[in-house]
Amino acid sequence: MAPRSTVQRSREHPVPGSVSAGVVSLPLAPLEDAELLRQLGEGRPAAFRELFDRYARLLRGLLVRMLGVDSEIDDLVQESLIVVVKRSSTVRDPRAFRSFVYSVGVRVARNELRRRAVRRWVPWDEDVASVRSVAAHDPVLTQTVRHIYQTLDRLGPDLRVAFVLRFVEGRELTEAAALSGTSLATFKRRLSRATERFELLASRDPVLARWIEERRQP
């Protein structure tokens, strides 16, 4: 799955002058992140701007795919970046900085899911499921997406993180296990349960059942 992250990187932080930024920028990334890490350690405002420019979009995309679009996404991006700043001194290998940022986003998303699970004890918060997307002009697609998220909401934080990392983010099992902070065996077990439960719940959801039926039609 490395090519996917390479493409994302080229979109977020293109190297000036490169024809194919996704390919050319990869060898330079460790050096750039090393310098960024050093400057973050010095608390330079310019480094914070650079961190935001490089990784805010990556984190936003991850959080949106994990949680759906809602009014709290911007706050969660901020929270993730603040955690990155606080813990940047723990990154020993600058080449791992990008993965580190990504794993922080995963942790923030999981914590948010846990908070939301608690919040549902109180009155149902409609915002949690209010998914907006580019397909907003297509009500059927929008509704399908919303129901997928509602189904994911019923998985529980750990299973949902496993599901999204594997099926939405397209991460390899070992990589996804590392990003979610679990052993490979635990991740596999969670993913198996998540898949089984998601497909069961989806088959019982009228909107998703219709979507499943349409997919089966030639």
């Binding site: 935001f52 805010a56 979009r57 936003r60 995309g61 949106v64 795919r65 759906g68 679009v69 911007d74 991006v77 998914v131 907006r132 997307s133 580019v134 397909a135 697609l141 399908t144 997406v145 997928i148 998220y149 599901f163 999204v164 594997r166 099926f167 939405v168 983010e169 397209g170 898949t195 998601f198 497909e199 989806a202 499943i212 997919r215």
Partner: peptide, 21 residues
């Protein structure tokens, strides 16, 4: 597979044009 399809749906659809912070 249904899970793959759902994942692809989210990947493709939940990418707003104003994603850039």
């Amino acid at each position: 597979r249904l899970s793959d399809a759902a994942g692809r749906m989210l990947r493709e659809q939940v990418e707003g044009e104003d994603d850039r912070p």
